[in-house]
Write a protein that binds this DNA or RNA. Sequence first.
DNA 1: GCTGCCGTTTGTATCGATAAAAAGCTGCCA
DNA 2: TGGCAGCTTTTTATCGATACAAACGGCAGC
Lengths: 335, 335
Amino acid sequence: MATIQDVAKAAGVSAMTVSNVINGHPNVRPATRDRVLEAMDRLGYRVNVAARNLRKGRTGTIGLAVPEINRPYYGRLAASIIAAAARHGLRVSIEQTGARRENELAALSLSRNRLYDGLILSTVGMGPADVGALDVDHPVVILGERIFGGPVDHVAMPNEAASQAATRHLVERHCRRIAIVCGRLGGEADVSSLRHAGYLRALAAAGLPADPELVVTAESLTMREAARAVRQRMADGPGFDGVFCVTDTVAMGVLRALADAGVRVPDQVKVIGFDNVDESAYLVPSLSTVDPDHDLMADRAVGLLAARIDGGGPEREREEFAGPFRLVVRESTGG
Amino acid sequence: MATIQDVAKAAGVSAMTVSNVINGHPNVRPATRDRVLEAMDRLGYRVNVAARNLRKGRTGTIGLAVPEINRPYYGRLAASIIAAAARHGLRVSIEQTGARRENELAALSLSRNRLYDGLILSTVGMGPADVGALDVDHPVVILGERIFGGPVDHVAMPNEAASQAATRHLVERHCRRIAIVCGRLGGEADVSSLRHAGYLRALAAAGLPADPELVVTAESLTMREAARAVRQRMADGPGFDGVFCVTDTVAMGVLRALADAGVRVPDQVKVIGFDNVDESAYLVPSLSTVDPDHDLMADRAVGLLAARIDGGGPEREREEFAGPFRLVVRESTGG
DNA sequence: GCTGCCGTTTGTATCGATAAAAAGCTGCCA
DNA sequence: TGGCAGCTTTTTATCGATACAAACGGCAGC
């Protein structure tokens, strides 16, 4: 594989001149430039990125750590982030953490290896107790839930507000016994807890009691576990007329479980999700949901990260950005 | 940020000794090792991967180029590949090509930049005419469709065989006018053409005529376009009693379009897809499909690539591997 | 013809880690 | 005591690109 030296020799110039041509520096005589370009072409020269990275101290790659890329929500998020990063001239490398705390911490340390110029971390497993791990000397942006007081930039989902709006929508559609399907509660700042809080607030605002019977807890936020949890709860009749699902993926599992039990949606039970993944509009019945504007959040997250990378040193204050959201009403809540 | 030299100085040894400790070489006295480890810990030392890459001529990262990560099939594929790569100690960086030929070619050239040790390319836009572009001097594995005679390893979907099996299944369920929903035909080796060929073969084997009216062509293999194409075709009644959809994503669009038209699945029309993405089991009705064993294919693709990277030089013959598949019967074809 | 300036080109050092070879140490035996 | 084998450790050179400063060449002006 040809190096810059080979090209230099072939073109009868120094390596620096070749470098100058590659990087579009001014003050290279056109005739020289042409000679160099011709030599590069002839030798099939390609920049060695490792060498450039070493010299420049940058890799041009950011890391994206998500629980699992194979879930509509994270797929969608990743797509938005890859696109946003490309606009900043950055590539994206994806780590799967399996929502496990230790893997999320490992992702942080990879980025310390200078493999990435910065890291976008979608935390799920880490809790407030791990805030210390975030206190690193390289750019990190948390995307998703809320890490209290973490010393990093943070783009937050509008968890509580949007959950409240979703639940309120069920109230407005005359649901009176509204269930929530979520993951295990107890953490301070995970998706389930935050969205559960929004759900409770909506109930309170509507003067509805918060019946613990109506909290359906799945082992994990997957279709399988959501369906299983709902089936179990429905052993003796639904006992609810509305369901707020903490993600659209969960909602898909719930819709399936309801269908298995012969429960008609939206006639007998109304269902609303959270995320507005692409699939939601195409389900039968199509799924009402709240849409947190992924593109905007991705754009903001990458923007913050890029700013940190480009020298926005540690003296810059950390930023918090809470995304906007939009209620999307479809068939599953009666259109 | 501390370098290996800093650690060496702090531990009172040479840089090489530190390097030896890092890389777990034998012949480092335990006492020395401890001293080095302590210094590394104290200084918060992290390997500079760019420097190591330069020296070793490897990056430890492979590229995965897919049309769009935000589609269930590619998400699933990416998840499998990331997992398989991790087993080989490789990281995965994802490029989105948008199924566009020029982006697929660009992905090839990125890998030429030695950014990646190798590339797994899921071709969609490139055709047999671009075979020349694949003749590169670094490891590439094509995953997906068939590139005739490309000078690279190739893990192929069992496109024709599985499509034939899916269509045959519809025949066995007494469908007599079986439609196919696919993308534009005409290419020699794209998904749609190959799966269309399998569909035709099944019809021929069953002695059914191949009515061009039953070929529904979508602009792209998305839910939106599939739904649009089917709606258009159904303006004057369905005219078919079975549909083979070239992907599960397409099937989701089709199911939605049928629901909109008040057509009952599977009573009036039976539907089968291709891919067995996670969502398929949870749709209402759940989707029959063929499952190409993504994990196995991912494993094989990464395995081939890793072998090429580890010196399996260009003299090794290129390999072709056609994945197995499995028919998955669910509600959409009558259970 | 000489000076000085400006646009162009080149030499040298460097980023940080590591392969290969050389040099230091031990301890053991003759 | 000298010599040698076998671990340990260090020295030196290198991967390829680029920052920086120095050198070069041509030309206008005196």
